[in-house]
Design a protein around this nucleic acid. Structure first.
Lengths: 240, 240
DNA sequence: CGGGACGTTGACGTTAATCAACTACCGTGG
DNA sequence: CCACGGTAGTTGATTAACGTCAACGTCCCG
């Protein structure tokens, strides 16, 4: 499959172009598979025989308490990998958020490749580092930000580099998903988004697409400044 | 220094016996150093020239918001390592909690050792995996547990394997430190601990030492079961 | 066109933050 | 050795934030 990759037509979206997952796809035999929305892929505490890479779409990784509270550990976008590290078992379940394509690699094969191929080692270290950085951000906002600030930081994280450009950003997950990731209720998420709109900080084209109008104000809020009250955006400060 | 290690007297506590940090100390030149309580070691966003291992004592890794809220990312016990991964800069500050001994390695030297020494690679992967597992637990309790449950889970995490034995566990950090780690106020931590005592789940010998009397009840609470009300411990169920 | 899932908004209740008083402890210096 | 002051911890009263409950609107798919 690797040898044939150059013959594949460009529209066959079963490969990632760059980043750690691309390296893994280059070096290892992977099995690709598509998932429907909400389709289950990993069961928490199940034996980790495979590593999973997201080729397109988005997964959510989550755990549930005995009494039914769900925490979404992270949303895994295209290019992301689940199951790296020296683990015997998965520590969270995973489901597709949107229609997604994933590739699975044998955990043993990855281990073997890491012993011999420096590029694979680099890729794994890269992916682990990225995950740790993302977790750092998530942990901080859960630990010391109020609900509005959490939502603001989440929107900025989702927007990424596009945040400053006024580009339309997709929020593919539901309000409940966002809530279970941010440690609040979906009503609280909904209210925060409404307030941001009224304050002129963002604009929603529909419930699942937004643009950032006032990047500076949103950032100040997300970083945890001043008594967490939303000020109305001043038009001329936009895109600071 | 490595060559001389066998001549060192046993009471010289500048080495860790086992685990990832022990491997790093074996393979790399490290500079040891002692820290007084509250002494600063790492500044957030500073260039990462060194990796830091905790030989004895405990550090806290933390970030502070512009308006002064502090979040303690994690407490780093003896054997723990700070600064692993492909990072240009530290993502958090660090200070000693108690009088501590640390060892610092050059980041470049570590990188070189990882290229040539499989044992070092294993050790780094090990340490990163441990950190991710710890972060998973921390994130979950910040994301979906109430304050009492957070404190219960924290006490269990601190107790570790000793939790089931009724051994005395030291809580070397202050209530404020615990609070800034759990995303609550120090009053809330204090109240939770008092409630656990009144419920017969733990016993405090003094403000910084406790034993777990009813491991089962504390675990049920920490895992997020039933409406998060504290029931009084039933004596015969102890140590379940 | 109808039903169900999702999202928004409002009213109300609960949790935990805030404000405040008080106590215990520890190190320092008289 | 005790007096003193500062820090840390506990506990209570009050308030603010957010969860819960409920009603309603909207969109999508059958």
């Amino acid at each position: 499959m690797t040898a044939l990759s150059s013959f594949r037509p460009a529209y066959a979206q079963d490969r990632i172009e760059a980043g750690p997952l691309a390296v893994l796809q280059q070096a290892l035999q992977g099995v690709t598979q598509t998932l429907k929305p909400d389709q289950h892929v990993i069961m928490e505490a199940s034996e980790r025989r495979t590593i999973i890479g997201v080729v397109s779409g988005m997964l959510r990784s989550f755990r549930v308490t005995p009494d039914g509270r769900r925490h979404i550990t992270r949303f895994v976008d295209a290019g992301g990998v689940i199951g790296l590290g020296k683990l015997a078992a998965f520590r969270a379940s995973a489901e597709a958020v949107t229609r997604s394509a994933i590739v699975t690699f044998s955990a043993k094969a990855l281990e073997a490749a890491m012993a011999t191929d420096p590029a694979v080692r680099e890729a794994v270290l890269d992916a682990l580092t990225k995950e740790l950085i993302q977790r750092d951000r998530i942990q901080f906002r859960l630990g010391r930000l109020w609900s509005d600030e959490r939502v603001a930081d989440f929107l900025l994280e989702r927007a990424g580099a596009r945040g400053r450009t006024g580009a339309v950003v997709a929020l593919e997950m539901s309000r409940a998903d966002i809530a279970d990731h941010l440690g609040v209720t979906f009503e609280t998420v909904s209210r925060a988004i409404s307030r941001f709109q009224r304050a002129g900080m963002i604009a929603m084209t529909d419930a699942h697409h937004f643009t950032i109008l006032h990047h500076g104000a949103l950032t100040v809020l997300a970083e945890g400044d001043g008594g967490h009250a939303i000020q109305h955006a001043h038009p001329c400060e936009a895109a600071s």
